[in-house]
Simulated assay, not measured.
Amino acid sequence: MQMLRCSVNRAIGVGEFISSEKFNVGGSDWVIRYYPDGCSHRSKKYISVYLELKSDNAEVRAWFAVRLLGKTQKSGWRIGTTRLFKGGPGSRSLTSGWEKFLERKLLEETTHDLLWNNRLAFECWVNVVKKPLVSGTSMSSFTLPPSELSGDFGNLLESKEGADITFLVKGEAFAAHKVVLAARSSVFKAEFCGPMIEKEASYITVEEMEPAAFKALLHFIYTDSLGSQLDGLEFTDANELLRHLLVAADRYGMERLKAICEMELCKTINVETLAALSERRGCSFLAFGRLGNARYERSIGGSAYVGVVHQRRRAQQARANQSVNAGMQKFFDELSHMQCKIGSKRCF
């Protein structure tokens, strides 16, 4: 911090300045320049104040602040931004400050004593920014710790802390947080943030869903992964859970979870699972014909693929025949009860 006391010295000329004595900060010499009539014609109605680096051939990064000290009062600090000062003859980076530091007529007001005995006192604070001590260390040597986001949300689900909704699935209760569910699923968002009755509910009964599938669904919503949900399950049980989870993902609009379930099922696909799953709408990977012939040939063999095609066509034809037969039967049933009299005779 440096103090500069000087006479107002008005009318010494625009661009003329008074310098303070040198002071040393951070190993470099500095002075304060005071322009009583402004440093240019644009600022001739103001006083100008600048900080100047006086050390030759020096480059210093610093920031500084200046204020006026009156007899009993002080002005507010004017704070400059951090910048690079370059010393040396002819350098344009010697100084930094304010062309219009303060309007002269404000100094002459009697409501303050910043100007007293026709003198001004400046207080200047200079802070030199040194080079970082770790400048020689490569940033690539630092390793960021792994993300704990999914683990933290998984712990939140397990702890049930702050849970505000409970799902009842075939007698099993699952506690969760509405805000997390709404953020991850458009279906849950409509339920909890829209006009639906579930918005104020604290308990919701989930129909037509297996508890294990709903538990895996919640785990994925909170952690964006299946985690250990399939660990320890037999092959058949794991496939069964994936099929139920695929239905749950479709029900709650979890597209990423749907894709994961589909791809996992594709790894172990057979005639039975393909025939069952290809009938479901919305299964992009398992929709009929979308896996490609090469995928089918590797997974279940060409003959099995042909068998699936015929099985699907036979099922479609059977449903069509059943629909036609039911329609015709209904027509004749209704027709048999009609009475169309011509005179006193019935047509049937």
Results as ranks from 00 to 15, higher is better:
A121C: 15
A259M: 06
S284F: 00
A213G: 04
M338P: 15
I47V: 11
K267P: 02
A213D: 03
E123T: 03
D250S: 09
C266K: 12
G88I: 08
A248H: 07
G171N: 10
T111D: 06
A320I: 00
K45W: 15
A212Y: 01
F188K: 04
E272Y: 03
M338N: 15
T110D: 10
F348K: 02
D113C: 03
M254R: 01
S40A: 05
A175M: 01
E59M: 14
E148K: 04
L94I: 00
L115C: 13
N127K: 11
V31C: 06
L245F: 04
L181C: 11
R92P: 07
V169L: 00
R346N: 15
V247M: 06
L291M: 14
S323G: 11
W77C: 06
N155T: 02
K160N: 14
M263S: 08
V8F: 15
L265R: 04
K215I: 14
G253I: 03
G282I: 01
T143C: 14
E21C: 12
N155W: 02
M196A: 03
N321F: 05
F192S: 12
V8K: 09
E108V: 02
V308R: 02
S141G: 02
G15A: 11
F17A: 08
K22P: 08
A315L: 04
W98I: 07
T81M: 09
K74E: 05
G292Q: 04
T95R: 12
N118G: 07
K178I: 02
T223H: 06
F220T: 08
Q73E: 05
I18C: 13
D152V: 05
A276Y: 00
N239I: 02
A320N: 09
M139V: 01
G151C: 05
N9S: 09
F235D: 09
S336F: 14
V14M: 01
G171K: 10
V8R: 12
K215T: 12
W98M: 11
D250T: 08
V306E: 06
G38D: 06
V31D: 10
S336H: 08
A62V: 10
R92D: 15
V324N: 01
K345G: 10
Y35S: 10
S28T: 01
V169F: 01
L257K: 00
A318M: 14
G97K: 00
G87R: 00
S186D: 00
Q339V: 09
G307E: 07
K330R: 12
S43G: 07
I47Y: 09
Q316E: 14
Y50F: 13
P89T: 08
A65M: 12
C266H: 02
S147Y: 03
W77N: 04
S303V: 05
F64W: 14
S40D: 06
L53S: 03
I79V: 12
C266D: 06
V180P: 14
Q311T: 00
G343V: 13
H244W: 03
E191R: 11
E52C: 12
R313E: 15
A213C: 05
L102I: 06
S228R: 07
